[in-house]
Lab assay of single mutants.
Amino acid sequence: NKFNKEMRNAYWEILHLPNLNEEQKNAFIQSLYDDPSQSANLLAEAKKLNDAQA
Rank of each mutant, 00 (worst) to 15 (best):
N9D: 08
A27D: 07
Q24N: 06
N9W: 12
Q53R: 10
Y11W: 12
A10Q: 01
L15R: 05
A40V: 11
H16A: 07
A46K: 00
L17V: 02
A27S: 13
S31G: 13
P36M: 05
N26I: 13
A27L: 08
A52W: 13
A52G: 11
N21D: 09
Y33S: 02
L43E: 04
K48T: 06
A52H: 08
I14P: 00
L20G: 00
I14S: 01
E6H: 05
S39P: 15
P18T: 09
E22K: 09
N41L: 09
N4R: 01
N4T: 04
R8V: 11
S37Q: 08
D51T: 14
K25H: 12
Y33M: 05
Q53N: 12
F3Q: 15
A54I: 06
K2Y: 05
L49G: 11
K47E: 02
Y33H: 03
P18A: 05
I14V: 03
R8M: 15
S39H: 13
D35A: 08
Q24T: 08
A40S: 08
L15N: 07
P36Q: 06
Y33A: 01
K5W: 01
R8L: 14
D35S: 07
M7K: 00
H16N: 04
Q30I: 06
A52T: 12
E45H: 13
N50K: 04
L42E: 05
K2F: 11
D35Q: 06
W12K: 02
A40N: 12
Q24H: 09
N41Y: 07
F3V: 15
N26Q: 09
S31R: 12
K5A: 01
L43Y: 06
Q30V: 04
L43N: 04
A40H: 12
M7L: 04
S31I: 06
E13Q: 14
A44H: 05
N4Y: 13
K2P: 07
K47W: 06
A52I: 06
A40T: 13
Q24A: 10
P36N: 05
L49H: 05
N9M: 15
S37V: 04
Y33F: 13
E6V: 05
